[in-house]
Each structure stands twice: as structure tokens, then as C-alpha cells.
Design a binder for these strands. Structure first.
Lengths: 332, 332
DNA sequence: TACCCTCATGAAATCGATTACACGGAGGAG
DNA sequence: CTCCTCCGTGTAATCGATTTCATGAGGGTA
């Protein structure tokens, strides 16, 4: 491929001048500039970002590590990140941690080697030493969706507490009393928060929260299915199940369907995370929607603040309840 | 951040030796190697891939440009690409073309600047001069999902012809005669192929294909909805509609639901592309499944062949019909 | 005419790695 | 004892850009 030197030779100028043209420096004569452009297109010149990055120590690249690329929530998040980064002239390098700390660390390492200007992480359950060290070294870092206690890292997440309170009230109004929670892992902030908000909401509505009705999963389809089976096998199975995320809801649907049960007559369901196709399910699924794309965009804004040496404050965006038919009363 | 020079100083060796340790060169004394490793971890040394790439002219990075990150088909494709690339020690840099030629070209340019070792493209409708030039320059390039005529570029796609034939037979057996197609754009190879296979299948089953029943969309939700509306507004609306991809199916579901029609009693539907949640739709949707993840993995294998100077042959993977209830006969 | 600016440009150092080549010492063969 | 090999290591060139500093031409002012 053509190098800056070749362009310089073809245009009859020095490499310094070509570089000035590349970087829109004002102190280049118009006629010279034109000659340089001509040479560039004649040679199909593509500037080498690798060399430029080495010299400038900036790559105009940010890393994004998500929990699971097949989860539509993360996909929408990624979409928001992409859009905003693109707007600011940054490229996103994405890694899929598959909810595993070792995969997460693999990508952190790779992205650090590639010298991304900043890092956006949806942290997995465990705080790994690598991530901790990164945070303590003060590198531009923003957590997304999930927070980690004790680390001073700006975080963008959504607050589902009030939506969960609304949901529990809705369930009670529809006549449901024995409400179960198939939650995320207690090791994840999102898992804990949703569990706590649910417990608080149950208390507020004067409903009893039985210990056997609260079961932690791992935010993946399999655990949703397993937990649903366990709940339905209980001597006194719940009226309604609230799932911690959309994949666990999918697992729950699977199990309920396999048993030939009817929603909401036999058991009502609700989901944290809304996804497009919930409205086409039989019956349409009541869900709590997070502003995923906006979370992604906001996180990029924070990260670029940090990259440019400006401060960044954590943000909490509201989640909202979307009522559909999967929680309707037994009588209806 | 610590540089190789710092590590060398701390370990009391030259940079060449540190570099040899980094690259697992056998000709380093064990004791020396240990000292170098100690120095590296004491300094939290992270090798600079930018500098390495500049010197070696390889980045161990591949670019992937997909049509739409919110389309689960592409997501699964991306997952397959990621997995295989990771296995081979490559990082994937992904760009979302949003089905727009200009966005696609933007990412092609950016990825070229970043000097990715190879490029995986799901080409948008138009063949842009940039992509054409790339192909002609013989750069490592593989097309995914969609092919472009007249270019000698290895392509990985799936063949839906036999599955479409099966589907049409199934529809006929279920008593459907007036079958419509909400297809993809004729400018896309996938759109054309599915349309042709459908026409051939209709002929093979002795069914009439009315011109007003074949309408091209753009593989996005909106066009699925619009076409469905147009079809249902026809003086003699179709019995069954076959959608060109999962997003168009989603649009169709939307419109059918909005009109209060019942599937399959009022109109039967089937989809190209299968997605997890089709089996939970009311009623479960008959679909043609593409091996998306495997397509992604295969494409990476081809691309890395090309990167390493070996030849790569195009591949066609079979798509399979998954029968569910959305096409059942009116009487059943 | 002498002096000082400004403007456009070039020469060369630099970023952090890899790698060709050189070199010194140890050990074996004759 | 001399010569040759091989092993482990170091020196320095190199990749392709950016950027500092120097320079020369041209124009205005005293």
C-alpha cells in the first residue's frame, strides 16, 4: 500500500506537507494542497492509523465489553454505544464476555494492548484483579448496566425500583398473591437491586414473600427454565413469576409451554427487560423496559469526558412498566 | 505506561531479549526469561499492539461489517464470527452498516485505515466503487450472507431453495392456494434468490403466482408491515404470506394483529430466518432456519485462509424448514 | 538599503515494538 | 593449542506517521 512518502514523492513535496494536508493544517498553500490530494487519489492512499496512533498515543477507538451478544438488551445497548461513538469519530471494538470473568479479562487485556482510548464494561459477577487495577490506575473506564461496590468508577445503569413497585401493585390488583421471583445472581448488582426492590414492593403491598419463592439464576435461558420448573414443582406453586431478565423469561416460557400450562390462567408472568417480540407472544408479556440505547449513548458521553480529562458523573436512567396481558387476573 | 525499554532496564537486559521473551523465542536462557517475566509483572507491562503492528504489518484483527445489529440473524452471525476468530487469536472489529451503502463504506474505510488483516462484509444492495476496488486489488475479503455478481470474492451463504420448495408444498397440503411473498429487495442477492426459489416452487406445485402477490421490501420491519397491509387490502387477499426475513415477519405480525385477524385462520404466515422466540408466538411461526453461527465461523476460516495466502472457496450451507402452527389448514 | 515579519515548506527526531546482523564465550574436534 | 560451532545476547535499522525547529522567499517599514 502507498505510504505517505510515496504521496510526497508523487506530489513533489515533503512528508511533512502531506501530513499537514491530512490533518487540515491551515498553513498549506491551496495549490500545494490540491497537488497532494491529487497524488493521494492517484495512489489510492489510505492513511495508516497504526502509525498515526503510535505517534500520537491516541487510537480514537473505544472498547466495549458486553455480557452476552445474543441478549437483545445488550445488542440494543451496543447499538447506542456505536451510534454515539460514531458521532464523535470513534470506532468501537466489541468483545463478548459470555458472562464469564475469564473471557471478560481476556478482552480487557486485548483491548489494552490495542491501546483503546477508553473502556466500557458491563462487568461480570466477580470483580477481577485486572479490572480493579485498571480502576485504581485511573484509566478511562465506565461501567455499564452493572455497578461494582467500592470502586470509584462512573456507572450508567437504570433504576427499576419504582417500575417493580408498580408491577407488584398491578399483580396484586389482578388478584395474584403468591408471587415468585426468578432473579439474577446476587453477585451482580442488577440481580441484587431487582431482588431488593421486589422484596420492598411486596412488603409495601402487604404481601408475604416466601423464601422458597425467591430463586437466583444467572440471567440466562437455562436458569430461567430450571427455576420455573422448581417453582411449579413446589407443593404450593406461585400464582405469578417475575423474571430477572428477558432470557430467563424465555426459559420460563419454554418450561410453562412444555407443561401445557396456560398464561396467565395457570401462572402469570412478567419480565425485566422488554423486547420487541414480547407483544407477539401468547399472551403478550408484561415487562419493565430499560432505555438500553440511551444508556449506551450516555455511557459513551461519560467515557469521552474522562478521555478528555473532564470529570464524569454516574447516571441512573428510569425503567418503565409496560402492561400487557400476561399478568391478567385469573377471572378475566 | 511501561514500555519494553523499561522492562529491559528493570530486568537488566536489552530490549531485544524482552521482545524475544514476548514472542516465545526459544533462544532465551531460562533464568533470563524468568527475570524478564518478573520485571513485566512488577511494572504491569502491557505490550503495545500498535507498535508491534506497525513493525510486523499485521494487526491480528479482522473487520466485520453487518447489515443491522438489531437483526437477530446478524447477531448470531456475529457470534459465530467472534467465536472462530477468538479461537484463532484474532480480534473482531465490528461495524453496523444499517443497510446503507454510505455507512458500509465509512466502515470499510475506517477498517482499512486500522489495517485489519481481512474484511468480512455482508454487502448492502449497491456495489460501491470502494468495495469493487478492494476486491479487484485482491485484498483478503469474504462476503457473508449476500453475494455480488461479477466479483471474484469468496462468499458464504445459505441455500434456501429446497426449504422454500418444502414450505410451498406444506402450504399447499394445508389447503393454501393464494400464497403471497413479502420479499427482500431485488437489489440484494438474498432477495432475488428467495423470490426465484419461491416462484419455482409455486410452479412445481402447480400454483398460480399472481404478480400482485409478490412485493419487494427492504428486510426491515416497516416494509413487512406496509406490504402486509397492501396485501390484505387487495380485493382478493392472499391465504398465506411468506416473509423474506425475520424483521419483515415482525412487521407482518404487527399489522395482522392491528387488524384483529387470526393466524392461520384468516391468513397463514411463514418466515425466512428462524429466531428463538418464534416458537412462543401466538401461534408458533413456521420458519426456514439458516445456520447463522456456522456461516460466521466458516467465513472466518475462509478469510484466514486468504490472509495466509491460501485459496478460499465459496460455501453454501443448507437452510432447513421448521414447521410450526402458523401455516396450518383453515379447517384444522 | 537594512531589518524584521510572515508564510510555506523541509529535515530530522520520535513513538514502541521486531529482527537482521554482529559478537563474545564455552565447548568440542583435530 | 588452535579453530570452528553454537548459544545467548546486544546494537541498530526499520515500520509510517506527527511535530518541532530551522530556513528561505517575499513584503513592509524606517
Amino acid at each position: 500500500m502507498a505510504r505517505i512518502k510515496d504521496v510526497a514523492a508523487a506530489a513533489g513535496v515533503s512528508v511533512a506537507t502531506v501530513s499537514r494536508v491530512l490533518n487540515d493544517s491551515p498553513s498549506v498553500n491551496d495549490e500545494t494542497r490540491r497537488r497532494v490530494y491529487d497524488a493521494m487519489s492517484a495512489l489510492n492512499y489510505v492513511p495508516n492509523a497504526v502509525a498515526r496512533s503510535l505517534r500520537t498515543t491516541a487510537t480514537r477507538t473505544i472498547g466495549l465489553i458486553i455480557g452476552d451478544i445474543l441478549n437483545p438488551f445488550f445488542t440494543e445497548l451496543a447499538r447506542g454505544v456505536e451510534d454515539e461513538a460514531r458521532r464523535e469519530g470513534y470506532t468501537v471494538v466489541m468483545g463478548n464476555a459470555d458472562e464469564r470473568p475469564d473471557e471478560q479479562d481476556h478482552y480487557v487485556r486485548t483491548l489494552l494492548e490495542q491501546r483503546v482510548d477508553g473502556l466500557l464494561i458491563c462487568p461480570t459477577a466477580e470483580l477481577t484483579p485486572l479490572v480493579q487495577q485498571l480502576a485504581e490506575a485511573g484509566r478511562p473506564l465506565v461501567f455499564l448496566d452493572r455497578s461494582i461496590a467500592g470502586l470509584d468508577v462512573p456507572t450508567v445503569r437504570s433504576d427499576g425500583a419504582s417500575a417493580i413497585a408498580e408491577l407488584v401493585r398491578h399483580l396484586r390488583e389482578q388478584g395474584h398473591r403468591r408471587i415468585a421471583l426468578a432473579s439474577g445472581p446476587a453477585t451482580l448488582s442488577t440481580g441484587r437491586e431487582r431482588t431488593e426492590a421486589f422484596a420492598a414492593a411486596m412488603a409495601a403491598e402487604g404481601l408475604e414473600l416466601r423464601p422458597e419463592y425467591v430463586r437466583p439464576g444467572d440471567f440466562r435461558e437455562g436458569s430461567g427454565r430450571r427455576i420455573t420448573a422448581e417453582l411449579l414443582d413446589l407443593p404450593e406453586p406461585p400464582d405469578a413469576v417475575f423474571f430477572g431478565d428477558n432470557l430467563m423469561t424465555l426459559g420460563g416460557l419454554e418450561e410453562i409451554r412444555a407443561r401445557g400450562l396456560r398464561i396467565p390462567r395457570d401462572v402469570a408472568i412478567a419480565s425485566f427487560d422488554d423486547v420487541t417480540w414480547f407483544k407477539h407472544i401468547d399472551p403478550p408479556v408484561t415487562a419493565i423496559a430499560q432505555p438500553a440505547a440511551e444508556m449506551g449513548r450516555h455511557a459513551v458521553r461519560l467515557l469521552l469526558s474522562r478521555v478528555n480529562g473532564r470529570p464524569a458523573a454516574s447516571a441512573v436512567l428510569p425503567a418503565t412498566l409496560v402492561i400487557r396481558r400476561s399478568c391478567e387476573g385469573k377471572g378475566s
